[in-house]
Computed example of a mutant assay.
Amino acid sequence: MAVAITIAVVALAAVVLFAQWMRTLPAVQDFLTTYPGQVELPGTAPVGLPAWLGWQHFLNAFFIVLIIRSGWLVRTTARPKEHWTRNNTGPIRTKGKPTKISLNLWFHLSLDALWVLNGIIFVVLLFITGQWMRIVPTSWDVVPNALSAALQYASLNWPTENGWVNYNSLQVLAYFSIVFLAAPLALATGLRMSGAWPKNATTLNRIYPVEAARAIHFPVMLYFICFVIVHVALVFTTGALHNLNHMYASTDGAGWTGFWIFAASLAVMVAAWFLARPLFLRPLASLTGKVSK
């Protein structure tokens, strides 16, 4: 472990020094001047973050944390101690009989359903309110500007942040990839691996084999984890109070309102993490099926 940490620190220091050296080159300086790190938004783009976006941010974070936890348990638990069987008929069946699945998988699939429902609401509101213009690239200039922002971050001379008005291009690509690429991939691969997938669709199963879904699903989870780590780190290192007010209080001020709302939401997520155990999951699962050991 110590060796891995040492290698990571040395590699990070090398990246920073290399980026700082690059910024001394005249051609790179011209590039940074031409592409400062962000693309101007369309004139009709909204300014600021509405309250519904703050609630959506919390719900997405809440669900994804528990989805990652339950997904990891599904992947690493070789002999589950408790199982769930559906009460009524439904798509999760084998030869006319309901399929017995682990309690961890039941929790994972239940969270997935809530996350997808919340995601649909989120995307609909994005397009109704025009907030999509803040996270969907509207110009190819986003690519060189994202490279510029990445170089500025790497050199520790970070780009000017004004997330209330406009994200930098690296943020735009990151948010776009999470909402419109990683999330649909997680859904498509998870659905393919679930019992709800039609077993008799021979042609469809040949085109989209379950092995392909398994090969993609886990890396997508790792991508979500990396995104969360980097996202949280940058929120706290690029002006924590301003950023938390943007995300949780829907204001551009520098007070502590956003921080306290964030602290309360974090307490809820931590509590849910520790309560997501068989003792508390068993009664919930029993509402829709039979739990057995």
Rank of each mutant, 00 (worst) to 15 (best):
R206Q: 11
H57T: 11
L244Y: 01
V179L: 13
V123R: 07
F63D: 03
P144Q: 08
P144K: 05
T94E: 10
P278M: 06
A113N: 15
S148F: 01
F218V: 09
T238L: 05
V228I: 13
L185D: 15
P184G: 05
N200I: 13
I207A: 13
F259N: 03
L147Y: 07
L25S: 12
N60Q: 15
S265N: 10
V235F: 05
H57P: 06
T237C: 00
P26K: 00
V268S: 09
Y153E: 14
K97G: 05
A285V: 04
A276Y: 01
A150L: 06
F259R: 06
S286Q: 11
G119I: 14
T89N: 13
S148P: 03
L275D: 13
G253E: 06
R75F: 11
Q20S: 01
L32H: 11
A11L: 12
T237V: 00
V270A: 08
N166Q: 06
L170W: 12
N168W: 07
P283Y: 11
M22I: 13
Y208P: 14
T34W: 04
Y175G: 07
P219M: 13
I7G: 14
V10H: 13
W197N: 02
S148E: 00
L41M: 07
D112N: 15
A276W: 04
L103M: 02
I92Y: 03
L103P: 00
S194R: 08
D252W: 00
A276P: 02
D252V: 00
L126I: 04
T251N: 14
V136H: 09
S110I: 04
T202R: 12
V47W: 14
R93G: 07
G43L: 08
T94L: 08
P36L: 05
K95V: 09
L49Q: 13
T77M: 03
L114K: 07
A149M: 11
L125H: 01
F259I: 02
Q38C: 08
Q38P: 03
